[in-house]
Computed example of a mutant assay.
Amino acid sequence: MASGKTSMSGICVNEQCVAIFNHIKTKSAYKWVTYKVNDAGNEVIVDQLGAGDSTYDQFVGIMPENNCRYAVYDYAYLNADTNQTVHKLVFVHWAPESSTTKNKMMYASTKDFLKSYLDGLGAELQATDFKELSEPEMRERVHQAITRK
């Protein structure tokens, strides 16, 4: 467990979550990672990894319809002004409407705790349905993060 600490809801973060995030940040072997709270409800663990050549549609396609997830997506954005590709690590909080209230509350109360271990996030996207998780929404979040700085 990362530093042996737990969130206010009693959930800890598995060290592998941070290690995979740092791997995505420094290498391009993975395009994204999803995290979930384990079945015991006491630890955030790595759920799935996307290969470096995986697509955004593949990322969206693995999100469960009835359960929450966290994710980090390495989004490549072409800046029209400079014609340069910019990479931003986007934190995604997936909380579908069809998820149970208990599940949504558990994920919401642990989100900032998990994010505190992930140094280098460039933007955040919260989604409750697949439309909010669309690639144009992701692009808009990244664009906002770039122009805000």
Rank of each mutant, 00 (worst) to 15 (best):
110 T>V: 09
2 A>V: 07
43 E>N: 11
80 A>N: 15
56 Y>V: 07
7 S>D: 07
135 E>K: 12
38 N>I: 05
98 S>L: 15
138 M>G: 05
139 R>N: 15
102 K>V: 14
107 Y>S: 02
4 G>Q: 09
67 N>Y: 11
141 R>W: 04
8 M>D: 15
117 Y>A: 05
14 N>C: 11
26 T>R: 10
124 E>H: 08
39 D>T: 14
54 S>Q: 09
111 K>A: 13
25 K>G: 00
5 K>Q: 13
136 P>R: 00
144 Q>R: 15
73 Y>V: 03
50 G>Y: 00
91 F>H: 01
33 V>T: 03
97 E>N: 14
14 N>P: 01
117 Y>E: 05
145 A>I: 06
113 F>L: 01
39 D>E: 15
97 E>C: 12
90 V>C: 05
26 T>Y: 06
52 G>N: 04
122 G>M: 05
51 A>Q: 10
135 E>C: 10
30 Y>E: 08
63 M>A: 12
146 I>M: 15
46 V>I: 09
122 G>F: 03
10 G>Y: 10
125 L>R: 02
57 D>Y: 09
97 E>A: 14
91 F>G: 01
29 A>Q: 10
94 W>C: 04
28 S>C: 13
36 K>A: 09
111 K>L: 07
69 R>K: 14
34 T>D: 02
118 L>S: 01
18 V>H: 01
31 K>A: 09
73 Y>R: 03
71 A>F: 01
108 A>G: 12
114 L>N: 00
125 L>N: 04
5 K>R: 13
37 V>P: 03
45 I>D: 07
73 Y>D: 02
64 P>W: 07
31 K>H: 12
3 S>H: 15
2 A>H: 05
44 V>D: 04
83 N>E: 14
79 N>A: 14
12 C>E: 10
5 K>E: 14
149 K>G: 11
8 M>R: 14
99 S>C: 10
138 M>K: 04
32 W>C: 04
49 L>K: 02
37 V>Q: 00
72 V>P: 02
80 A>G: 08
30 Y>G: 03
39 D>M: 11
120 G>N: 07
125 L>Y: 00
141 R>D: 07
3 S>G: 12
79 N>F: 07
77 Y>W: 13
14 N>S: 10
31 K>L: 05
10 G>M: 12
12 C>S: 15
23 H>D: 09
28 S>W: 10
116 S>H: 07
119 D>T: 14
49 L>Y: 05
50 G>W: 02
